[in-house]
Design a protein around this nucleic acid. Structure first.
Lengths: 224, 224, 224, 224
DNA sequence: GATGAATGAGGCTTCATTCAT
DNA sequence: GATGAATGAAGCCTCATTCAT
């Protein structure tokens, strides 16, 4: 796909060469993500980001207006990875029930891969000034929709009870995020696969209709 | 109860008069909670806290060692309010099912009352250095136990399926916290009462055994 | 006179103690005037000003909002000295012709005393943002009026020709300022007293009516 | 005249092609003059100058050693225009009195044409390091001489009183410059032509001998 | 106990200048 | 000759913390 993810970031760069901007911002985002995640936004200096990215501190300001822009790019990149991975996992699947639980599974796995960044998103969004914060909220709602659509399909198919889709979406999203947010504790409770399996089981019990239950048993015979 | 909330905060004060320490810290915590919640920890200055608390900036350092101590006190005070409100709501109740859902209800309501502070706890715990962070984690686990105990009782009574208690506890805790964390969106979805009702319904479906279902219907006849 | 010169500077201070503000600003203005005059506004750092004023760099920002405010205070202090010295020299004098030339004399002498600062005012006013620049212009016009009033009196008394007062005021003001602006050259041409004498002679020839000429000869018999 | 204006600027260029140097420096000077005049020397960046001149920032350093060189070229170009326009206006005139007042007239008109640049010269000369500042002073004295020579001729011809030539020159120079320096105020007082006429009248009264007065009346019959 | 003026280290940001292409 | 991305030194300003009163 020739999508340019940063197209809509709204972050202005002094450099015009698209490919170079992509490359440099990539370096900076990678460096910043790790530093922000480890030390937080305010404890991390531009100098540190520059050093880790292998560029000079001045160069950062050719690709970004201020430090908050760096945070914005980092957060957008996390949300971008959600928006990439979940559809990728659903590719080719048509069964609504399967799509719903695969989406949940995929979401948990991206979160696991980008655990530090996910936590960062929770902690640091409010470090952004209102206008940039809105960009993040918008991106978050888009990700939610990736979950919500499947819920709606299951309800329409009579597989799920007629629950409030938005609230249930948040339950699922939150379940995925919790793996990162409470990892300090959950890691001691169970592994990722078990976490996902138990989550699936939980949502299945909470949502399935009798008809849905039958379909579910066919999909996941292991689960009691 | 003869609990002295700050007793275990470990925060040292130069002032010895217990009552005075209580009073001054109360002022500071109130001021800091609002400011931290609105602007974040790093954007808030000691001078601002002092001004809002109606004291001089120098005075703060007589009751606290550094700025991070102020944050610690604020966070402990939030967790303290959880630890106060939930048992209070359970007082006199003995039915495990009722206790479980009343606890969830109470948790959601404290979170609603201390919404900004709850968000703050999520965002700012990592702003603390490791040792003080441990204090917070410990307090958090104590709160969790207020929920977990009821879950265990329900399972023991055959009212709930034999789910993983810790994970389910996190689901409930997270459900309560989400009301604050996602309030910018949830406020548009439903009111607090509806949020609680739907959450209860959700957890009921997810957890109840057939036996539990009968008991639940007696408790909440309204819910389908 | 219990006038507080800085009353109208519009520069805000965090410190409330009037006397202290007066004292600290005095130190800063003195230091800054010298440094700005020698090196210019942009070449002078806040650290240098602080060092020379015997305070810390941070303290400056308790008495001033930014570096430009320091410049504003310096410039206002120059204009203030004009507004102080000229009336002082005129005190007790009633003869319009005498008042006119004494004012010119006094103006030249303040400029001489505050030579570096006068040059600074010429060079640096435009370094101020528009709103603060207006303050300076207003103060400048007030000083001009100290000259203009005397011109008007002389014209009304039939001692001076009916020239354009405003233009002539500027001629006189400029004559005084030139002593500072072109001092690098004028110092080699003549001493201050001679400069003043020749200026007086020049304006006398340019402005006096026959009637005025007679009065002038009585005042300054030396001047042929 | 086979003068090459930049010949004596002493500014070194890496480019050897004379014509190209002329052209490029012309672009740079034009752009820089406007920017320096509007924003001042320090507020203007090399990048801005390059952009407005339609060249790259790097190119500037092929024609100039540093930023101060750009300022030097700008200032020399202003003084150059004085040195060009005044003699041009005097071309063919032989009457000393006429030459004197035409020179004043011409000076005022160049200043009017290059108002912003004239102000710039006042404000920014001190931004140059001593050696380059000397170049400017020398050029300034040359321009003064264009005025002084005429004064001397008038005195020699018995048309002007035997005043101090250097001081009087400064009075005239300053009168011309004031049109630019105080334009923010003078524009409201009178138009350029009136400004010049009143100045002429002023200097005439101040300087003319009885003999000169007769000649003056022949030249400017309108002026009372 | 309380005040708030004073300190000074530290970080973001700008921009003159360089240099590989 | 020309470009513009890259560098990094330097300065303004903030703010936690101290301390004399």
């Amino acid at each position: 796909m020739d999508i340019e993810p940063d197209e809509h970031s709204g972050v202005k760069s002094q450099v015009t060469d698209r490919a170079l901007v992509q490359k440099r911002r990539g370096q900076m985002i990678a460096a910043a993500t790790e530093l922000f995640a480890r030390q937080g936004f305010y404890r991390t200096t531009i100098q540190e980001i520059a050093r880790k990215a292998g560029v000079s501190s001045g160069l950062i300001y050719q690709y970004v207006e201020d430090k908050e822009d760096v945070l914005l790019l980092v957060l957008l990149s996390v949300l971008e990875s959600y928006k990439q991975e979940i559809p990728a996992a659903l590719a080719g699947l048509t069964d609504p029930l399967q799509r719903c639980f695969v989406a949940l599974d995929a979401y948990c796995r991206v979160v696991d891969q980008r655990r530090a960044a996910t936590v960062l998103a929770y902690r640091s969004t409010k470090s952004l000034p209102q206008p940039r914060r809105e960009l993040i909220k918008a991106a978050e709602l888009q990700t939610n929709e990736l979950i919500a659509a499947n819920l709606r399909a299951c309800i329409a198919a009579g597989l799920f009870r007629d629950v409030n889709v938005e609230l249930t979406t948040y339950q699922m999203v939150t379940f995925a995020h919790s793996w990162a947010l409470k990892h300090w504790r959950l890691r001691a409770v169970c592994a990722l696969d078990a976490y996902i399996a138990q989550g699936r089981d939980f949502f299945a019990h909470a949502l399935l209709t009798p008809k849905g239950r039958a379909a579910y048993r066919r999909l996941y015979p292991a689960a009691a």
